[in-house]
Design a protein around this nucleic acid. Structure first.
Length: 504
RNA sequence: GGUCCAUUCGUCUAGGGGUUAGGACGCAAGAUUUUCAUUCUUGAAACAGGGGUUCGAUUCCCCUAUGGACUACCA
């Protein structure tokens, strides 16, 4: 009874990876790792009309970035392949045929147009118990007629024959006992006219063949659970059926409903894990990675959307999540996505992680913004100095950039109103004294600065802010003298000179 | 319309028959930091409504309301 835990994430390669999808992956992964099991990636590409080139690679890349690498799947391989459903076409047909021959499914010849008409004219039309006998299928047509249609190559689908007046129920790992009346469930298509299975057939067949023990998916799948349950029963695999866990949805921050990528565009935050460039239109949908999120933070915030460990702890590493995760503590209701809180998680992680760990990302960012970094030791030092004031990785461009590149503009409003010849004079003298300074370090610069302030009869506050603006361009950043020492003697002097002209 | 699921501060949530209903984000105020941020302190802010059960319900039960998901030859 102690079979190895096997879970799967089964996306369809139709575009970017939604944050809700990543959370499903995460919960799969956490559960698998917690129980020493395997995490499988299966590509559900049964809808050929929606296939998008590059989407599969993109999904794999997202999982890598998140650190949620599959143990088994299209890339990792494994003994239950192929892991792409389009390559398993024959398998599904075999089982569909088996169901037909056993009377558990049937051929249906109605065209999509005919069905659409029915739906338009009959209020609560559904292809099932109440209407299937008025339609063109192997239940209503004479046997030889069915054979003739088949022989002629008439397009058909295979539909499940749902029984009536049965109660079908199961215990969901998250929401407990759930039951349905089969009379109200329609005869879902199992095999499409193009010979591909629908999700309903494919998920059951593959979960069985791949020995999946626990099936996680979004709550939007709950209504089709009875079809899947019935299929497990019809196929005679009931004893091998995975335990179901329907995850709560991630909702729009405002208004109502499932979070969509449109909400992100409307409200100004990413919904996808990474940037997604649509291959046809070329339009790019922003992702958390490019927006400047750390994968640790992204994972952390997703985990907290629907789960908690019962304490006040909110910052968890992936290792801690694996250790503490439990399905009993997953919430039942949907959670509205809050981008402000998401940013807070990222800021916390930037503070938590050490400067070396940030080095590579920051270097890439600075370089991309035409800021040349020559000295990596210096960079690490700077990161350590400014990281507490960064919320997103992209904040490092502003917060660390001026250490390597002088300001191109100044916050003149902060300086000019109180600027005068006396202050200008102070800095002129300061420059010449700086030139004499042998040991150009924080304390020496500060000592010199303060001494000069006293000599000139000024207040330190009068020249401190101008000095900062000279070096940084604005009213931000760590201690001014630290900045000066890191920037170096020559550069400091040259920045003061430049600024002096701008301040005049 | 039908089926299913859900309901604690604005948001994410803890809690659970007797609590000053706890934390976090955000917001406000203050302290520290001769900038900004960090940090710290404080504050405003919630049990959807109605019936039961009970000595006592926010907690258990029922109903209502509200919200959501699904209702394709999409997943």
């Amino acid at each position: 009874m102690t079979n190895k835990v096997r879970v799967r994430f089964a996306p369809s390669p139709t575009g970017g990876l939604h944050l809700g999808g990543v959370r499903t992956v995460l919960f799969n992964y956490l559960f698998a790792k917690k129980h020493g099991g395997d995490f499988i990636l299966r590509i559900e590409d049964t809808d050929q009309t929606r296939f998008v080139p590059g989407a599969e690679e993109y999904i794999i890349e997202c999982l890598k970035w998140c650190g949620l690498t599959p143990d088994e799947g299209t890339e990792a391989g494994g003994e239950y392949g192929p892991y792409r459903q389009s390559e398993r076409k024959d398998i599904y047909r075999k089982f569909a045929n088996q169901l037909v021959s056993e009377g558990k499914a049937y051929y249906a010849f109605d065209t999509p147009e005919e069905l659409e008409e029915k739906r338009a004219e009959i209020p609560n039309f559904q292809y099932g118990h109440s209407f299937r006998h008025q339609l063109r299928n192997s239940l209503t047509l004479p046997k030889d007629e069915v054979q003739r249609l088949l022989d002629e190559g008439t397009p058909y689908v295979i539909r499940i024959n749902m029984p009536s007046n049965e109660t079908i129920s199961f215990t969901d790992l998250i929401r407990g006992f759930v039951s349905f009346d089969t009379t109200l469930v329609d005869d879902k298509v199992l095999l499409k006219a193009d010979g591909m299975p629908t999700y309903h057939l494919a998920v059951v067949v593959d979960d069985f063949l791949m020995k999946i023990t626990h099936a996680f998916r979004g709550e939007e799948w709950l209504p089709s659970a009875p079809v899947h349950l019935m299929l497990w029963k019809y196929l005679g695999w009931e004893d091998a059926m995975p335990q179901w866990a329907h995850l709560p949805l991630i909702l729009k921050p405002d208004g109502n409903g499932k979070l969509s990528k449109r909400d992100g565009a409307r409200l100004g935050f990413p919904v996808y894990a990474m940037n997604w460039a649509d291959p046809s239109g070329g339009e790019v949908t922003p992702g958390f990675r490019e927006m400047g999120f750390l994968p640790e933070a992204f994972i952390n915030l997703l985990a907290m959307l629907g789960w908690n460990d019962g304490t006040d702890q909110e910052i968890f590493s992936i290792a801690e999540l694996v250790e503490k995760f439990s399905l009993e503590r997953v919430n039942h209701s949907g959670a509205k996505f809050d981008f402000e809180k998401a940013k807070w998680f990222n800021a916390e992680w930037i503070k938590k992680v050490n400067a070396e760990a940030l080095q590579e990302d920051v270097l890439t960012l600075l370089t991309a913004n035409n800021i040349k970094v020559s000295d990596s030791t210096k960079l690490v030092k700077i990161i350590g100095l400014v990281k507490d004031r960064c919320t997103l990785l992209t904040d490092f461009i502003l917060q660390a950039g001026y250490f390597f590149k002088g300001p191109v503009s100044y916050d003149l409003d902060a300086v000019k109103p109180k600027w005068n010849v006396q202050k200008e004079d102070f800095f002129t003298v300061f420059i010449s004294e700086l030139e004499q300074l042998e040991h150009f370090a924080t304390e020496e610069i500060e000592g010199l600065f303060k001494k000069l302030v006293a000599d000139k009869g000024l207040k330190i506050g009068d020249v401190m802010l101008p000095f900062r603006v000279m070096l940084v361009g604005g009213k931000f950043g760590p201690a001014v003298f630290d900045i000066a020492s890191l920037v170096g003697k020559e550069e400091t002097i040259s920045r003061i000179q430049k600024a002096l002209e701008a301040f005049r």
